[in-house]
């Protein structure tokens, strides 16, 4: 049965639509409440995972290495939940990493332009013009975040199966449209699509485990066979490949591990200048 992923230019709007769609369809919702469990698993404060979903790395803020690690933890937690069917997922950036899975309906909700402006005006006592500018800045920041985190522009409509603008469509109508669309046979789960989701979940599990020791490791999975790419100096190649194979091989579901070690030219150049 299908999975629905909802993305929106407003977290609150996306959350409301996701909740209503789940209720109308009798599905479960998956959202930021899973971050607590993920934080416990990886022994870090939940706030850091939430922060990673909003901010990009900066000199005084989160380092790039930690940011990528935290996002990998969110991804792993989300994908393991998405192995269940009949769920509506929102708020975990899943639209940027659950790609190519036929039974996933990807929906973008564009919030009513006036509603968030009015909310900001009444909440903060600022002018409508200032509120509009503030919201536009937030939207641009969110777009930059998606590009930096997953190299995808989340505002690009071609990323979605369905885009609904709430300026002209009521939220109730939007839910009806989502309900009708997800009923199309093309979004029904099939052996291939379930396999795609299992592959993504396994790859994310392995990557989340490897990133602390092997930052930048890239993992893909196909029916228990993993292909892992990592950077290393020539002299470290054998050692790193062996360590990765050992670590990845311990994860349930992994049957075979192939490691491609790519020469780290930057580090090599840096070392040769020492």
């Amino acid at each position: 049965m299908p999975v629905i992923i909802i993305s929106s230019d407003s977290y609150q709007t996306g959350r409301e639509i996701a909740g209503s769609a789940a209720k109308a369809l009798g599905y479960d919702t998956i959202g930021r409440e899973i971050l607590g469990k993920a934080a416990d698993k990886y022994k870090l404060p939940e706030a850091k995972l939430t922060k990673a979903l909003h901010e990009t790395p900066s000199f005084l803020g989160m380092s790039s290495k930690l940011w990528k690690q935290y996002l990998a933890y969110v991804q792993e937690a989300c994908l393991s939940e998405l192995l269940r069917d009949n769920v509506v997922c929102q708020g975990l950036a899943a639209h940027l990493y659950v790609l190519g899975v036929p039974h996933v309906l990807r929906v973008r909700i564009l919030s009513d332009v006036e509603k968030p402006v009015n909310q900001l005006v009444s909440q903060r006592g600022i002018s409508p013009d200032k509120a509009s500018k503030l919201l536009e800045r937030e939207k641009q920041a969110s777009r930059r975040w998606s590009l930096e985190a997953f190299r995808l522009d989340e505002t690009d409509p071609s990323q979605y199966d369905l885009v609904i603008g709430l300026s002209q469509i009521d939220p109730e109508e939007a839910v009806k449209i989502i309900k009708e669309t997800v009923g199309y046979a093309r979004f029904r789960a099939m052996t291939y699509s379930i396999q795609c989701m299992e592959d993504l979940a396994l790859a994310s599990k392995v990557r989340a485990m490897l990133l602390e020791r092997f930052p930048g490791a890239r993992v893909s999975a196909n029916r228990g066979t993993l292909v892992i790419e990592t950077l290393a100096l020539k002299r470290e190649k054998g050692k790193k490949a062996k360590a990765i194979k050992e670590m990845a091989g311990k994860i349930p579901g992994v049957e075979y591990v192939e490691v491609h070690v790519i020469n780290d030219f930057l580090r090599q150049a840096a070392e040769s200048f020492r």
């Binding site: 190519g100 036929p102 046979a185 093309r186 099939m190 052996t191 291939y192 699509s193």
Partner: peptide, 17 residues
Amino acid sequence: MSVAREAMEKGAFDFIS
């Protein structure tokens, strides 16, 4: 994904790679 979805829409029972 596109072929899998097309097949299901046309009435396939299942799709295996």
